[in-house]
């Protein structure tokens, strides 16, 4: 475990503590005798500090403009998510969720997944509009209802979630780049590669798909190693995006596509069956209660 990993882990502890404290103060619940607004400001400052420290872990992905967009999208995603779960009004929750979705689509674009970026925006735009309709239809109290002002056991929930976050950060920082990237644009120095072979195996190197051994992952490795599943063709040029994605989707993953279509159909039938209004069974209504005599009448 080198010094960078150790400093990263120390910083991760600070980030997790700051984020947990800020999120706990921002969640809706009674803060003793303190005024809610004071507690919200303190929580926002703590969570913002945690977020600023958290973005020190990120490495800029390239030239200035790419890095700028990456930082903007990532900050908007995490901050939007934090505000989504802490705001009282469900309408604002839906709006912040829209910011999360747009930022995630931007990150998809930056990682070369144009089709997914467009698909995410299209699918979630519909979902968010429907959610808006639901909020306007169902929640009339604009965040003043009791269940919007009282979180369910906020301390235990914050603790468990941020302990999980620390566990994720810890396991991520213990992964080191694969030693075989020496020909890549960011070659690992040979000294580090030598240190990998040392018995100090606390940092397991990330294995490339092609280097996975035989065993339980053989099917996944074979699927991912086919020429149709590669981002680049045999000459090393990138394939045209949607053409390449459709090629692998309809050759390697045809069963998954069919299963996904079936799942959509089943969900459509299920949603219609659930949401269709049924006539309520009244005590005197004999023919409504007659077809199902085993079910207790729901008067």
């Amino acid at each position: 475990m080198d010094t960078r990993t150790q400093s990263d882990l120390m910083l991760a502890i600070v980030v997790v503590v700051l984020g947990a404290a800020g999120t706990y103060l921002l969640l809706p619940h009674r803060h003793g005798v303190a005024k809610p607004r004071t507690m919200h400001i303190a929580g926002a400052i703590l969570a913002g500090l945690g977020l600023l420290l958290f973005d020190m872990f990120w490495r800029p992905p390239g030239p200035f403009l790419t890095s700028l967009f990456f930082y903007a999208f990532s900050l908007a995603a995490v901050a939007g998510g934090l505000l989504m779960i802490t705001t009282r009004n469900p309408i604002y929750s839906a709006l912040w969720f829209a910011s999360v979705v747009l930022s995630t689509s931007g990150l998809f674009l930056l990682s070369g997944a144009q089709f997914l970026a467009a698909g995410t925006v299209i699918v979630y735009a519909g979902a968010i509009i429907v959610t808006f309709l639901f909020v306007i239809m169902l929640a009339q109290m604009e965040g003043r209802a009791t269940y919007d002002r009282a979180a369910r056991s906020p301390f235990a929930a914050t603790m468990s979630c941020f302990v999980l976050f620390w566990g994720l950060l810890y396991s991520l920082f213990l992964v080191k780049p694969p030693a075989s990237v020496a020909t890549g644009p960011n070659p690992a120095p040979p000294a580090a590669a030598m240190a990998d072979a040392s018995p100090n195996a606390t940092r397991a190197p990330l294995t490339r798909t092609q280097d996975l051994g035989p065993g339980s992952v053989a099917l996944a490795r074979d699927l991912a190693s086919r020429p149709t599943a590669q981002l680049n063709d045999a000459q090393g040029r990138p394939k045209p995006h949607v053409a390449g994605l459709g090629e692998t989707l309809y050759t390697d993953h045809l069963v998954s596509v069919e299963l996904a279509g079936t799942l959509l159909f089943v969900a459509l039938i299920g949603a219609v069956a659930i949401a269709t209004p049924k006539r309520p069974i009244r005590p005197g209504n004999r023919e409504a209660a007659a077809p199902s005599p085993t079910v207790a009448p729901n008067a």
């Binding site: 839906a94 999360v100 269940y147 009282a150 979180a151 369910r152 056991s153 914050t158 941020f162």
Partner: peptide, 17 residues
């Protein structure tokens, strides 16, 4: 971070939406 925040919202909030 997004995953953990979503889990926190699911555990702590009481509004179904």
């Amino acid at each position: 971070a997004l995953m953990v925040l979503g889990m926190l919202g699911f555990l702590a909030r009481r509004n179904l939406i």
